[in-house]
Design a binder for these strands. Structure first.
Lengths: 156, 156
DNA sequence: TATGGGCCTTCCCACCGTTGTAAGGTCAAG
DNA sequence: CTTGACCTTACAACGGTGGGAAGGCCCATA
């Protein structure tokens, strides 16, 4: 099985397969005489595992842990569950942060009539900060992430 | 005003102020004879604008647009609103993606007894994919992002 | 005046996961 | 033999931020 076939069959791009190999997430694949990587169904299953875990938002680091547990026959399901719960908690935090952003933006957009006139409460908020909004509804928004916390939330 | 003072006063780190200057998001600051950057209150206001917009999840690219509109006296509030609505829509999408991940993980975690035994439905799902889950509740999860879409969702 | 500490400068590197590109080798079919 | 689709490695880019090194500047205190 080529890397291309393994890619199609696992849903992981060839690029990423090579990358995962380079960082040691997956073992180095076998090679043909010509140097082409060779994959078995077992390898593809591994790749699918990774793909699925990425879809669930696990970082590569966490996936390493999950893979170790997967291959450890004496694992305890509690260990796996703990990683999952941790992941859930992380997702929860980021969802709340984004929800707070979205709520604020929605209030601002609602307050903006959106016509041809230049006056715009959205720009006013950006200039003056949230504290100067006319009776703003931001008390319930427990101190937006002060430093770098909001980083990495843009669509890449 | 030093870059350090401007940083404290605007909430933008000195590092980032230099970065924003380097990418042309803000104009090059004045300099003292010694080469130190000098900032006025107007510059600080600009930095606060940027800081606030970042807190609201706008990308640097979008902030460029917002700044252009801010400085354009003949802008129409509709243009600003449109950017905000677009940002809201983007946030909505990513929140839904993360929510879907979280729901799936929660179902899996709920199904995992989390004790000393090795059997674990979480690992089983990762191995077999969502379609093999015992009567899984994933019909309502319209085809998880197939390619790269889930990228950038890890905490950096 | 000398010395120290805190600020500033530029420059490069790391992060994370993914994609793109370039220059070359290989394989199979026509 | 040629063509095109694949493979290989190697390097850079993205977004936004933090870290650090090496050197210069400013001010205060001894």
């Amino acid at each position: 099985m080529n890397i291309g076939e393994a890619s199609k069959s696992s849903g992981v791009s060839a690029k990423m397969i090579r990358y995962y190999e380079s960082i040691g997430l997956i073992p180095a694949a076998g090679r043909t005489v010509a140097g082409y990587r060779v994959y078995t169904m077992t390898d593809v299953q591994l790749l699918r595992f990774i793909r699925r875990a990425r879809d669930l938002g696990f970082s590569v680091e966490k996936i390493e842990e999950l893979l170790a547990l997967w291959q450890d026959r004496s694992r305890q399901s509690a260990d796996v569950k703990q990683i999952a719960l941790h992941q859930i908690a992380g997702l929860e935090v980021r969802i709340r942060e984004m929800q707070a952003m979205m709520d604020t933006l929605r209030h601002l957009a609602d307050a903006c009539c959106g016509d041809h006139r230049p006056d715009c409460p959205i720009l006013a908020d950006l200039v003056n900060g949230p504290d100067h909004g006319s009776g703003a509804r931001e008390e319930d928004q427990q101190s937006a992430p002060r430093s770098g916390k909001a980083a990495g939330l843009q669509a890449h």
